[in-house]
């Protein structure tokens, strides 16, 4: 083993140079490009609101069961329709910024006596699930939903 301080410093620099990109890659923040009309909230996680109270939330959940995307999409639909009384409005595939395929589902619901629209996009990332949720009362939902759908392609 050499004890030359210059050699040790050089080795350390090489290690850092190798590790830095890896560390930075791990720090890629969860989120998406802000759709027009929304303001990012600097609370924990990635949340945004519009002036007319539409809410947009990007989250990740642990998926210890490692379910497939098809399984989670079917389960969500089942839970929302049978258990919570939501009405399915549409469903389709969606791609995130990295080109991964997710599932986009839209529902209509009545919550606290108010008709709402609800959109959820889900990506299965092995042991994690990434979700984007968007909800607002009916007319507000319709006003923003196109921009949100478009923004899903920027989810990271």
């Amino acid at each position: 083993m050499t004890s030359d301080p210059r050699t040790a410093a050089a080795a350390l620099r090489r290690c850092l140079a190798l590790l830095l990109p890896v560390l930075l890659a791990g720090c890629t923040s969860l989120g998406m490009d802000l759709p027009e009309g929304f303001l990012r909230l600097h609370a924990s996680g990635w949340r945004a609101v519009s002036a007319d109270d539409a809410r947009l939330w990007v989250r990740e959940f642990d998926d210890p069961e490692r379910g497939t995307l098809a399984f989670w999409a079917a389960t969500l639909t089942e839970e929302f329709t049978r258990n919570r009384g939501y009405a399915p409005v549409g469903a389709s595939e969606v791609q995130d910024k990295a080109g991964r395929t997710g599932r986009l589902m839209e529902f209509a619901a009545t919550v606290d006596g108010e008709r709402c629209g609800y959109l959820i996009a889900v990506w299965s990332l092995g042991s994690k699930l990434r979700t984007v949720e968007f909800t607002a009362r009916d007319e507000v939902y319709r006003r923003h939903v196109a921009a949100v759908r478009q923004g899903l392609a920027t989810v990271r």
């Binding site: 989250r59 929302f80 919550v111 609800y118 959820i120 979700t131 949720e133 909800t135």
Partner: peptide, 8 residues
């Protein structure tokens, strides 16, 4: 953890 109620 997801759904309209939770987001609200």
């Amino acid at each position: 953890q997801v759904g309209v109620e939770r987001v609200r």
